[in-house]
Computed example of a mutant assay.
Amino acid sequence: MSAKDRPSLGFGDELDDFDPAAWAKPKAPTHKPAAEETKQAAEAAGFRSREPGRGEAPPALVPAPLQRRRRTGRNAQFNIKARPETIEAFTRIADANGWGLGETFERATELLERENAIR
Rank of each mutant, 00 (worst) to 15 (best):
R70E: 09
E37P: 05
E37H: 00
F90N: 00
A34F: 12
K39E: 09
A89S: 05
P7D: 07
D17K: 14
G100D: 05
G10T: 03
T30Y: 11
A24L: 13
A60C: 07
E43Q: 11
P59K: 05
N116C: 08
P63Y: 04
D17L: 15
T86M: 14
F78N: 05
E37D: 02
P29H: 15
A57L: 12
T91N: 15
A57N: 11
T72G: 00
F47Q: 05
N75H: 13
A45Q: 04
G12F: 04
V62K: 13
L66E: 13
E85A: 15
R70Y: 02
G12A: 11
Q67T: 13
V62C: 12
T91L: 14
N97T: 08
E36C: 11
R114P: 09
A94H: 01
L15H: 07
N79T: 15
A76P: 11
D5Q: 12
R50Q: 10
A57F: 13
T109V: 13
R107P: 00
G10E: 04
R6P: 07
F78I: 13
N97Y: 10
A42P: 03
R114I: 10
K81M: 15
E51S: 09
A22L: 04
A82F: 01
E88M: 07
R107N: 04
F90D: 03
A108K: 00
P7I: 01
P20V: 01
A44W: 06
K81T: 10
A24Y: 15
A64E: 02
R74F: 06
A117K: 02
E14R: 11
G12Q: 07
E103Y: 08
I118Y: 08
A44I: 02
L111Q: 06
V62S: 13
P7C: 03
T109P: 05
E85V: 10
A57Y: 11
K4D: 14
G73K: 01
A117H: 06
E51M: 08
K27S: 15
E113S: 09
G10Y: 02
S8G: 06
L61G: 09
D5M: 05
E36A: 14
